[in-house]
């Protein structure tokens, strides 16, 4: 049995996922979609129980009514498990994973700035990557965001007087 099938089997047996939820895209690439309630449990098991000890990044997707977040976890043998979970766009609340991956904080800040996710438990810190004074409620990576939405809002007048 190949590595990918082992990963698939373990996840199927342990959490009782249906085979549609889990997809082996190619050698060393496994994609899995998890309901938000179950996400933390699966994530913790992948990290601590299955040795996926490296968080490559977190991708945020705007899927219309929902925001999807893909956590790309890698293992030393090269296998990558992409865990996807969804939250409604109206209340995009996530729990932080920075307790497991302190380095993941910056990826969560990026989600907060660019997609408007609210990450619970994320320590205070500088925002990333948008500048100070960026208008609230504008999240550039959302599909309905247009650059014109900044007209007259940003940059503010006083910024210009510095020049």
């Amino acid at each position: 049995m190949t590595n990918e099938e082992k990963i698939k089997k373990e996840l199927l047996e342990r959490f009782g996922f249906s085979t549609e939820q889990i997809r082996v895209a190619r050698e060393r690439r496994v994609f899995l979609e998890v309901p938000h309630e179950q996400f933390r449990r699966v994530f913790e098991h992948a990290v601590n129980g299955m040795d996926f000890q490296h968080l490559c990044t977190i991708t945020g997707l705007d899927d219309g009514d929902t925001l999807a977040f893909v956590y790309h976890l890698a293992r030393l043998d090269g296998a990558v498990l992409s865990l996807k979970t969804r939250v409604p766009k109206a209340s995009p609340v996530l729990r932080t994973i920075s307790d497991l991956f302190p380095g993941g904080m910056i990826y969560e800040r990026e989600l907060a700035d660019l997609l408007g996710a609210r990450v619970e438990g994320l320590p205070e810190g500088n925002r990333y990557p948008l500048p100070e004074g960026w208008p609230d409620g504008q999240h550039p990576l959302r599909k309905d965001w247009k650059a014109e939405m900044l007209d007259g809002v940003y940059p503010k007048e006083e910024v210009k007087s510095h020049g």
């Binding site: 990557p129 948008l130 550039p140 650059a147 014109e148 900044l150 940003y154 940059p155």
Partner: peptide, 10 residues
Amino acid sequence: DRMIRINDTA
């Protein structure tokens, strides 16, 4: 850094 304003809106 890869993301910010695309055009000048001032």
